[in-house]
């Protein structure tokens, strides 16, 4: 009898996990138009498909994009502030068998190796479902050069300020 209880408890736990795990299926693909060798400043798009494979509607679906840097020695989750303005899809309802297709645009701000993943959960389910990850490398790009700008941006005002100082000195010298 004791063994039967354990068996039933185990069966219920396993079956509920299986039902939950089967609820949402996430696919993620890199857009075909993405640059072959992405460089800083380029745009990349990722296409996700979220499929409700369960028997119940999914209420209050939330899906979001995450980016992780995996450059050796710099492994860290990335703040998407500069990278993407489209960070999540919220409040969607998915009927059984329905799919939600989303395109996630992203501007490549820094060079390095990155991995992108889409995660999803819903109002009632405590499980977070994740898509397969996509890894890409962002190449360095020569940007606006500070070596040219700094001497000009600081030098010209200093020069005019110097002339102004000389004028003031002369004016004071004259009046005294």
């Amino acid at each position: 009898m004791k063994h039967l209880k354990y068996f039933l408890a185990g069966f219920l736990l396993l079956s509920s996990t299986l039902v939950s795990a089967a609820n949402l299926q996430l696919q993620l693909e890199s857009d075909r138009a993405n640059p072959g060798q992405p460089t800083m400043g380029n745009w990349m798009h990722f296409n996700s498909v979220i499929n409700n494979t369960g028997q119940q509607p999914i209420e209050g679906l939330v899906a979001w994009i995450s980016l992780v840097e995996v450059t050796p020695g710099k492994e860290q989750p990335m703040d998407l502030e500069d990278w993407s303005a489209h960070k999540a899809v919220t409040g969607t309802t998915l009927q059984p068998g329905a799919i939600l297709q989303t395109q996630w645009p992203m501007r490549l701000i820094q060079s390095g190796d990155y991995r992108v993943v889409i995660s999803a959960t819903d109002r009632n389910n405590k499980t977070v479902f994740t898509s397969p990850t996509i890894q890409f490398h962002v190449a360095q790009k020569p940007v606006v050069e500070s070596t040219r700008i700094l001497p000009v941006a600081l030098g010209i005002p200093l020069l005019i300020g110097g002339l102004l100082g000389v004028q003031k000195y002369r004016h004071r010298h004259k009046s005294s």
Binding site: R107, V143, I149, L150, A153, P157
Partner: peptide
Amino acid sequence: AGILSAFSLLLISNRELSL
């Protein structure tokens, strides 16, 4: 010159603009 310098410095100090 200050206006032009401020704009130039903004370009190199702001990551988004520098790209």
